[in-house]
Design a protein around this nucleic acid. Structure first.
Lengths: 198, 198
DNA sequence: ACAAAATCAGAACGTACGTTCTGATTGTTA
DNA sequence: TAACAATCAGAACGTACGTTCTGATTTTGT
């Protein structure tokens, strides 16, 4: 009937995710996106809407990717502490040694946009609660395997792990060496093996 | 000899700190600063230099304020776990219940500027190391008082606390309730009371 | 009181951005 | 093959920003 798109919206969105994840919302211009993706403004606006809407879709995709890539296996039976550890290791590797200086779209959203954008704040809260819940489920499974202490409150510990993950990213962004971050991960996860006090 | 400044650079800088701490670098315009401080552009540029240099001084002041207000007492003899807990409580109160939506200048710097600004990244690293060290010294004192387990590596634990603090701010920014953050603080600090594993 | 010098408020300038518009191009259908 | 319709590249537009400039104002020392 007519000329077809010359780009694949899905792969374009992936590239946009990378841009936003490394530079945040304000520091990423539409010109950046046009240059990086090779997609025309016409294509971008026609397919994704304006910058704000594009960001929202990128955030959704980012969360989806984190879920499929990292957190989904925590929901499966047999999830272990090593699965949780792997999530942190991947995160550390992602931050420290990437040429792309990849950051974290969640933190960028929380710091840049969440306070003034109620909708995005709600989206972000949902994602973070989902992450905490996934951690909690994984921890519960790990508890069943005797890998963490039986008295650990997995819901609270899940929130703690979520918070820890963000703290790590902040440290990684300021250039702390990988060993430092790995040490923090070790301490955090090992603390789950002891009996909680109070 | 000549007309004097009509503003106090020190209090002006404090106001600028608040602005940058809540909205970050890019989202804070010089016009915002002029309006909030009531200081003319002439005065701002003449006293502090350009926006980037003003930000650097604000960051320095911010760190100084955090030190004097929170971390200095950790260096004094007799520092206890409660002193550390108070730092976290203050932080939580600062984030959750402020009308000003006060954020964290360190995180904003880490996410917005650090990757591309080597100098600021260095400054930020120094501040964060100082915080970790202060935590470590406080923890060492707390250990002497029998408040945390004797086998805790205070240096590593100091880095963990620093990282945790940032994670908390990110969660606070996305609107999580105060109780959630307080629960994380409790878990984090209580984990120092048990014997570390491995 | 007067002159000098630094202040202030705001206009002015150049740049960069998000968004829209336009003419040319392309691919598909009839 | 001819024509239509949606595409593309990039120009164009309005806005907002950081920074500089300007004329009026104010304060201090003589």
């Amino acid at each position: 009937m007519t000329r077809a798109r010359t780009f694949d919206p899905s792969t374009t969105l992936s590239q946009v995710v990378d841009l936003f994840a490394s530079k945040g919302y304000s520091e990423t211009s539409m010109e950046d996106i046009v240059q990086t993706t090779g997609v025309s403004r016409y294509g971008l606006y026609g397919t994704f809407g304006n910058k704000r809407e594009l960001f929202e879709q990128a955030l959704e995709r980012y969360a989806e990717g984190m879920g499929k890539q990292s957190f989904l296996r925590l929901l499966e039976p047999g999830a272990s502490l090593d699965h949780i550890r792997k999530i942190f290791d991947d995160r550390v590797a992602d931050i420290c040694c990437s040429e792309a200086n990849r950051g974290c779209l969640f933190i960028h959203t929380a710091m840049e946009l969440a306070p003034q954008d109620e909708e995005l704040r709600g989206v972000l809260q949902r994602f973070m609660k989902r992450i905490s819940k996934a951690f909690a489920i994984g921890l519960d499974s790990a508890k069943g395997r005797g890998e963490i202490h039986k008295d650990v409150d997995v819901d609270k510990a899940g929130e703690l792990l979520t918070s820890s993950m963000f703290g790590l990213v902040v440290l990684g962004r300021t250039g702390f060496p990988r060993e430092t971050l790995e040490g923090i991960v070790d301490s955090t996860l090992n603390s789950l093996k002891s009996a909680p006090v109070d």
